[in-house]
Simulated assay, not measured.
Amino acid sequence: MSAVSNQAPLRVAVVVGSVREGRQGRAVADWFLTTAAGDDGLALDVVDLADVDLPLVLPGWGGTPDPAAVAALEDVSPRLAAADAFVVVTPEYNHSFPASLKNFIDWHHAQWQAKPVGFVSYGGLGGGLRAVEQLRLVFAELHSVTVRDSVSLHGPWSGLGEDGSPRDAAVCAGAAKGMLGQLAWWGRALRAARADRPYTA
């Protein structure tokens, strides 16, 4: 890949991990998208798991997935494959991340490989950081690179407003821009590397 072509916008899939009724996840994601919208170097694609009819049985794991449910992934799987990088928006449930997110991650493999992952987390006094630390282990197994800095929104009762946006907007926006800077560096570096030499696990 030439230096010129590697200046094309970085395709970032933003995965909204919670599917609970009354969730704050989509509002948090919308805040993040607004914050990231000023960066012309990013092309953002939202993958909201509430809109994906996820199969519960993985192929080859002792069961037969519902063909209709598998068909629901025909739209979203190519979008992950086309992405250069990912941002995962996740709450923290019981010191971990949602089962819906784990199920979605496990349904894919090659789509995550040799690509960077950033995190926007929310919930409780820890701001979702325990969920993020566990997700780092999961994505390492999938040959992804997680960026060091993450965005941690504390609340949702104190740190987030009713619209899902952070009360300390300036600090959180700064954290988002810092994380996106790292994601963009890794995204472009790994995109060039994959073009030069396809990654094999």
Rank of each mutant, 00 (worst) to 15 (best):
18 S>W: 00
35 T>E: 07
175 A>I: 15
42 L>I: 14
51 D>I: 11
62 G>D: 03
100 S>K: 02
122 Y>T: 05
54 L>S: 02
68 A>P: 10
117 V>R: 00
36 A>G: 09
115 K>Y: 08
76 V>Y: 07
138 V>C: 04
159 G>L: 05
69 A>I: 15
125 L>P: 06
118 G>P: 08
118 G>V: 12
44 L>G: 03
97 F>K: 00
73 L>F: 11
175 A>M: 15
70 V>F: 10
101 L>M: 06
5 S>C: 09
64 T>R: 03
1 M>L: 10
39 D>T: 14
167 R>Y: 06
151 V>H: 00
18 S>H: 01
134 Q>M: 08
178 G>L: 12
144 S>G: 05
137 L>C: 11
45 D>Y: 06
74 E>K: 12
190 L>S: 04
141 E>G: 04
183 L>W: 04
101 L>R: 00
27 A>I: 13
142 L>E: 13
19 V>W: 00
100 S>Y: 05
93 Y>S: 11
92 E>R: 01
61 W>R: 10
64 T>Y: 10
59 P>Q: 04
52 V>A: 05
73 L>R: 03
147 V>F: 11
170 A>D: 13
3 A>S: 06
54 L>C: 04
6 N>C: 14
52 V>W: 07
29 A>D: 01
5 S>V: 14
94 N>H: 09
171 V>Q: 12
174 G>C: 13
